[in-house]
Lab assay of single mutants.
Amino acid sequence: KYSDMIVAAIQAEKNRAGSSRQSIQKYIKSHYKVGENADSQIKLSIKRLVTTGVLKQTKGVGASGSFRLA
């Protein structure tokens, strides 16, 4: 599940300011076997996790910027 992968990526990075979408994508692609549409799936999952309150956006708008666990 992409949401689990995103949470794992943010936990692994341990950046106080949060993790960027690009760094999350890079982590997921190197640690998991994902399909061609992974980028758009990650983007959608990040937006969903922010609206449900699992992630907090520290910089930027939408799916860009930095995110950390709430």
Score class of each variant (00 low, 15 high):
G35P: 09
S40K: 15
V54H: 04
T52F: 08
Y27N: 00
G18S: 04
D4S: 08
A70K: 05
I6S: 02
D39P: 05
A9W: 02
R48W: 14
M5A: 04
E13I: 11
S64R: 12
L49C: 04
R21L: 15
Y2G: 00
I42D: 01
G53V: 03
G60R: 08
S64D: 12
D39F: 05
I42F: 04
Q41P: 02
M5V: 02
K1C: 15
H31C: 05
T52S: 11
G35T: 05
Y27H: 04
G53L: 03
E36V: 11
R68T: 13
K47G: 07
I24M: 01
A63Y: 08
I24D: 00
D39M: 08
L69T: 03
E13M: 15
I6P: 00
S30T: 10
K43A: 15
V54C: 07
A17Q: 13
L44Y: 08
S40V: 13
Q11N: 09
N15L: 05
Q25A: 14
S30C: 11
S64F: 09
Q41M: 14
N15A: 07
G53A: 03
K47Y: 11
S45L: 09
K59M: 10
G62W: 06
Q57F: 15
A9V: 02
G62Y: 06
G60W: 07
A9S: 03
A17M: 11
A12K: 04
Q11Y: 08
K26F: 09
K1T: 14
R48T: 09
S66P: 08
L55S: 01
I10N: 01
S3M: 12
L55D: 00
A70W: 07
G18T: 03
S40D: 11
Q11R: 13
I24P: 01
I42W: 03
K1S: 13
A70V: 08
Y32T: 05
L49F: 02
G62A: 06
L69Y: 06
R48Y: 14
Y2K: 01
S3F: 14
L49H: 00
L55F: 00
Y27G: 00
N37W: 07
I28T: 01
L55W: 01
S23Y: 15
S45H: 14
K43R: 12
G35V: 04
R68N: 06
I24W: 02
K43T: 15
E36K: 15
H31N: 07
K59G: 13
L69C: 06
N15K: 11
L44H: 08
D4N: 07
Q25H: 08
T52N: 10
K59V: 09
A38T: 04
N15I: 04
A12W: 07
R48H: 13
S23M: 06
K56F: 11
Y32C: 05
